[in-house]
Amino acid sequence: MTDVAYYPGCSLHGTSREFDESLRAVAAELGIGLTEIADWSCCGASSGHTTDHLLGVALPARNLALAEAQGFDTVLAPCAACYNRLSAARLAIATEDGLAEQMPDILGHPFANSVDVHNAVELLRDASVTIEEKVAATLAPNPLEGVKLAAYYGCLLVRPFEVCGYDDPEQPTSMDEVIDACGADDVDWDMKVECCGGAFSVSRTASVLRLGRAIIDNARSHGAEAIIVACPLCHSNLDLRQKAMAQRGEEPMPILFVTQMVGLALGLAPVDLGLGRHFVDTEPLIARLVQQAAKRVAAEKLAKEEAAAKAAARAEKQKVGVAAGTSGAEGGEAQ
């Protein structure tokens, strides 16, 4: 399959390394080649463009230029924030007067703005048929079969539409399609594209708690057993901060990266997917799901065996009956 330039971004080398681990594991299973862009640098995140528009374009552009120079036409930026900044830079340079001309001087490199930017959800959605086939071919029972999962897109995967454009900005479906491909049930809930508080995790934690709580509550009230994300910021706000927002006695809501979910469906080991790195413990959920799946498979097997036994018995009976009928007919004829 395809080879793409891989832009992990700072979070995937740091606080969200499980996103990186699970992505690599899943990509390998799906036959997608990832080549990390050599000497990539930070995209500037919201601090970049909040402080200076040009800086907010130039920092991501350096990475696009590197990918271009390294011979790629597509960059995979799994982190939603990086994806958004890289795409926004690409669009700004293509459309805003003078930016394209300025870039080579600012970057100190030639730059033709020829590289497309994709996110992990987009990549997995486009591979959903393969995922479905692989999940079906996996020997171990699929722990996600029929499990209710809430796809949480947040802001940066879908807005602004001009920048992202791979999915509907208000009623996106791409991550839900990936959930379905994994055999799970996508939950129809209301907070798919609401903001989690983004970069205020550190500087205005109270805001993050208020916004995160509303998201988790809504997912829970719609029956979700876990929330699926594709953004390190969303993940850390909902996972790391969940303890602070939870009320006494409330079941914790596991927050999984979309790649971790696909990995589980493909039968990869939780440890290889970095599932042990979360603050909201994922072990009870996974244990429960595995148990459910085993039970389900056992029940299915039993039902199948019973059905087979019944069919065999029926066939046997028929055979006897036919034999008897035949002999009877013969007898009749003989009479």
């Binding site: 740091g14 350096r62 042990g276």
Partner: peptide, 26 residues
């Protein structure tokens, strides 16, 4: 959880980054 490291990753092209900041006047 292995999410934080004491050592900073430092890229080879730091000079280029400094240039970008300078050119943008930040």
């Amino acid at each position: 959880r292995g999410k934080l490291s004491f050592r900073a990753e430092r890229i080879e092209g730091v000079a280029e980054i400094k240039r970008i900041f300078e050119k943008c006047g930040v």
